[in-house]
């Protein structure tokens, strides 16, 4: 079973996506949120923190790998820095997903709980960008 990490500029958005994804998966899938930037008073600001992301990857770690879902922009940069901080053996089993954050996380949680591989889960999550939400006439 792979692990999932949710990266967003917003702490609450990452938590919300994690909550939603948790609902779609089984208990044996670890989903960890790493959103926002904590200041010295423990308050969250908009931003991303590579150190927290690296910790989240370690928390979600499974030998089967970790899929990282993210919003955009500097979330990608911070996640790249986080991956660079990890031991190479761990880094090789981590993927950043190009999937849309919310839809991708829901699909990934579902696919992961079916025991699919890292690559399979990522493909399914990325395909969520073509998801037709509204029935065509």
């Amino acid at each position: 079973m792979i692990g999932l990490v949710i990266v967003s500029h917003s702490h609450r958005l990452a938590q919300g996506v994690q909550e939603l994804a948790d609902q779609m998966s089984t208990d044996d899938i670890t989903i960890v949120a790493a959103g926002g930037l904590m200041d010295e008073h423990g308050a969250f600001h908009i931003g991303t923190d590579a150190v927290r992301i690296a910790q989240a990857i370690q928390e979600a770690w499974s030998e089967d790998g970790v899929l990282i879902l993210l919003d955009m922009g500097s979330a990608v940069l911070s996640t790249e820095v986080a991956l660079e901080m990890l031991p190479p053996a761990m880094r090789e089993r981590c993927r950043m997903s190009n999937a849309p954050l919310v839809e991708g996380a829901i699909v990934a949680a579902l696919e992961a709980s079916l025991g699919r591989s890292l690559e399979e889960v990522n493909q399914a999550a990325e395909a969520a960008s073509r998801l037709q939400k509204i029935a065509q006439e």
Binding site: T48, D49, A50, S74, L77, S78, V81, E84
Partner: peptide, 21 residues
């Protein structure tokens, strides 16, 4: 570098962090 990547936030954090690293 570690301070910048963990507390600056925007693109500047990881970019300056990478520069110093």
């Amino acid at each position: 570098a570690m301070i910048m990547i963990s507390s600056v936030g925007g693109a500047a954090g990881p970019l300056y962090g990478t520069f110093f690293l």
